[in-house]
């Protein structure tokens, strides 16, 4: 039987047979404002809260303050778990701005190789079991060619699997595609697309598990709401 990392997001785990299989790479995609970051925050926070599992949230775009504020507005007090060494909210975007004195250094700070090097060392003392990278888009934009990006992303994914850390990669998409660069879905074990649509004047958020290896999953499009305490998926309701 496969061990899994439950998301503890109401309604979601029953769509994915209890959670993400341990050590897998899971892609969360969607347009801006589709609650991708909130998904990642909840995944990490709930792991620390319910399963006593340390996790790392690596942010390359949004500031630490902004993420903490967003989490706090849903009642998720990240700092409590940070003090206990169970959650690490790392603002690499800030470091990129403050510590790179040239464009060349900024490049180095944004590469998969640096992230891998950082994580390799960090995991040795944090013991993190969950990782969120927000976002893949912010790393990919620094690569000069899609071939180079593909190669480096593949190496990075191999590292993550070897490290046996259950990862969420957040990727922003626009339009009808499933990923920004068209390659992320091939290295990922699962793909969950968050979206929103307007039908008959009603605006609805949607979640679709488009792919999930090692898992019998529900591939239909389900509505979800953002409630006072975060995301809530309706597993029994299906859209079109």
């Amino acid at each position: 039987m496969t061990n899994r990392k439950a998301t503890h997001i109401p309604g979601l785990d029953e769509l994915i047979n209890g959670g993400f299989p341990d050590g897998t790479i899971n892609l969360i995609t969607g347009p801006p404002g589709s609650a991708k970051s909130l998904f990642g925050i909840e995944y990490l926070y709930n792991g620390a809260r319910f399963d006593d599992e340390p996790g790392i949230y690596l942010s390359l775009e949004e500031s630490r303050e902004s993420i903490l504020r967003a989490a706090s507005s849903y009642g998720l007090q990240f700092e409590t778990f940070e003090k206990e060494g169970k959650a690490y909210l790392i603002d690499l975007g800030k470091m990129r701005v403050e510590c790179s004195t040239s464009e060349e250094l900024e490049w180095g700070l944004a590469s998969f190789e640096t992230l891998q090097d950082f994580l390799k060392n960090h995991l040795s003392f944090s013991g993190a079991k969950r990782l969120v990278l927000d976002s893949l888009t912010a790393v990919g934009v620094y690569y000069k060619s899609s071939e180079l990006l593909r190669r480096e992303l593949f190496k990075f994914s191999r590292f993550l699997r070897d490290a046996n850390i259950t990862t969420i990669l957040i990727s922003e998409v626009t339009g009808s595609g499933d990923s920004r660069y068209g390659i992320e879905e091939f290295i990922a074990d699962s793909l969950i697309k968050l979206d929103y649509e307007s039908a008959t004047g009603e605006y609805r958020r949607t979640l679709t598990v488009k792919k999930m290896r090692f898992t019998k999953h529900d591939p239909l499009k389900h509505p979800f709401l953002i409630m006072d305490n975060g995301i809530e998926v309706s597993p029994d309701e299906v859209i079109g």
Binding site: M95, C99, S100, G108, L109, T114, D117, F118, K120, H122
Partner: peptide, 8 residues
């Protein structure tokens, strides 16, 4: 603890 980022 943090790898090459330490150099920055």
């Amino acid at each position: 603890l943090i790898g090459i980022l330490s150099r920055y």
